[in-house]
Design a protein around this nucleic acid. Structure first.
Length: 178
DNA sequence: ACGATGATGAAC
DNA sequence: TTCATCATCGTA
């Protein structure tokens, strides 16, 4: 069972919540690493000042402007990779940042732990072909187990810094930041 | 061609 | 709070 492209064809805010509890699977050679998503953030639209897309389309962020279900990986702070999934309609830039999975807390640690580098940028997540895909959650998440909060590290984003577009599972021990 | 700047994490 | 450390982008 794999999560298909249509799953991502909604707003980033919805998809970010839908992804909580889903499984992120990485296959390297014969080895399979199965992780559970416990924390996400939504970056929604061209006006979201926290989003890379707010400064318009560039070569780096181009994948955010394309169809849903594709992977956006970028490099930051000179040493970290961040994993995002594009959502919504082509032409409308939006993505969900995977911030933490069990057993890796923090967006940089999960990419390191799963050996995700820039070579995944622009690849589809809705196929097993590239060794990285998603599987549905075992059971529905109760709404009161989802915490809504402000996004991390976006203090420069004006009115958008206060948007409650970060979501995490209340009972997880792998959240990147309280 | 150059300089500013991070969707971070770890150490101090 | 500082630092490690560099691709990307705006400006020129």
């Amino acid at each position: 069972m794999i999560i298909k492209q249509a799953f991502f064809n909604h707003s980033a805010i919805k998809v970010a919540q839908d992804l909580l509890g889903c499984f992120l699977i990485r296959k390297i050679g014969r080895k399979i690493i199965k992780t559970k998503i416990v924390e996400t953030e939504a970056y929604d639209g061209p006006r979201d000042l926290a989003s890379h897309a707010s400064r318009g389309r560039t070569n780096r962020n181009a994948v955010m402007f394309g169809p849903a279900g594709y992977i956006y990986v970028y490099f930051t702070y000179g040493l970290h990779f961040m994993l995002n999934i594009v959502t919504g309609k082509p032409g409308y830039p939006a993505a969900v940042l995977i911030r933490a999975v069990e057993p890796f807390n923090g967006p940089a640690r999960l990419t390191k732990g799963l050996a995700i580098k820039k070579n995944f940028n622009r690849l589809p997540i809705f196929t097993k072909k590239h060794g990285l895909w998603l599987e549905p959650k075992a059971e529905p998440i109760k709404p009161n187990n989802i915490i809504r909060a402000k996004r991390i590290g976006v203090d420069y984003a004006g009115a958008y810094k206060n948007k409650l577009w970060r979501f995490y599972l209340k009972d997880s021990k792998f959240i990147s930041k309280k």
